[in-house]
């Protein structure tokens, strides 16, 4: 995130956001936050894991894009163009900031919409305008909606994870990867659902999981891990081609 400016029709009257470029901008991003509402779509394309936030130690669901820090295999292989993009990526270059009311009257932190003016997609020549005649364009409205969905999603995430922790359903996963060129790497700090524990959950709690719609989410997480081997295959191919080159 570069320089965030609170979005206003005055200040950003002429600002435009290029349609393309979001993929290139995330070429060095190896994972992204995701929210419960999009688990089904995400799981079709990406491995989903839980990771700990370094500042709070709290688990966050993440979509994995690469097998090492700063690596985005979806971007480097061109695969990304065919994939669903997580809301967190779609929402760029917009963010929510906690607006401090300068008058000091308003006690509550009200999140407000902000634009990253350092993002290279933001300029004044071409792309989607934010405002047209002082009114938010359909594009801006859509971006605002995505951020609202994300905000709601983080709350839903929290409840889901609390329940998983409560029943000891989270287990640590270490990926030990050996590429065809015998290069090895170990990916740590990933967590997933502990299937053995899941089977032991008492029936009334299983019911609760079902009622809250958590069962398909857990299945999505577990099945999504298969994408790791796809990533390894792609990376093997990439490694091979760079070696030949």
């Amino acid at each position: 995130m570069g320089k965030l400016e609170k979005v206003s029709s005055e200040k950003h009257k002429h600002s435009k956001v290029l349609v393309d470029g979001v993929l290139a901008n995330n070429a060095n991003v190896h994972m992204s936050h995701i929210v419960l509402q999009e688990f089904a779509e995400v799981a079709q394309y990406y491995p989903i894991f839980l990771c700990k936030d370094s500042d709070t130690g709290q688990f966050q669901p993440m979509a994995l894009f690469g097998l090492t820090v700063d690596e985005n295999i979806y971007q480097s292989s061109g695969l990304w163009r065919k994939c669903y993009l997580p809301l967190k990526i779609q929402s760029q270059p917009f963010y929510l900031i906690n607006d401090v009311d300068p008058s000091g009257n308003n006690q509550q932190d009200k999140p407000s919409l902000a634009l990253d003016v350092d993002d290279n997609r933001v300029q004044q020549q071409q792309g989607n305008s934010l405002f047209s005649q002082d009114k938010a364009t359909a594009y801006l409205q859509q971006q605002t909606k995505i951020l609202a969905d994300l905000t709601q999603g983080f709350v839903l995430n929290r409840a889901f994870i609390t329940l998983l922790s409560e029943y000891d359903l989270i287990e640590s996963v270490t990926l030990d990867i050996k590429y065809n060129n015998s290069q090895e790497c170990k990916l740590e700090g990933l967590y997933s659902i502990n299937q053995t524990m899941l089977e032991k959950v008492p029936t009334d709690i299983q019911k609760q999981f079902e009622q809250q719609g958590y069962v398909p989410l857990m299945s999505a997480m577990l099945s999504s891990i298969n994408h790791v081997s796809t990533l390894i295959d792609i990376k093997n191919a990439l490694l091979c081609s760079t070696e030949i080159a």
Binding site: K52, T56, G57, Q58, F59, S165, D168, I170, E171, S172, Y191
Partner: peptide
Amino acid sequence: EKIAQFGFSKV
């Protein structure tokens, strides 16, 4: 203070 606020996870 972080433990008071967030706690450790078991895993």
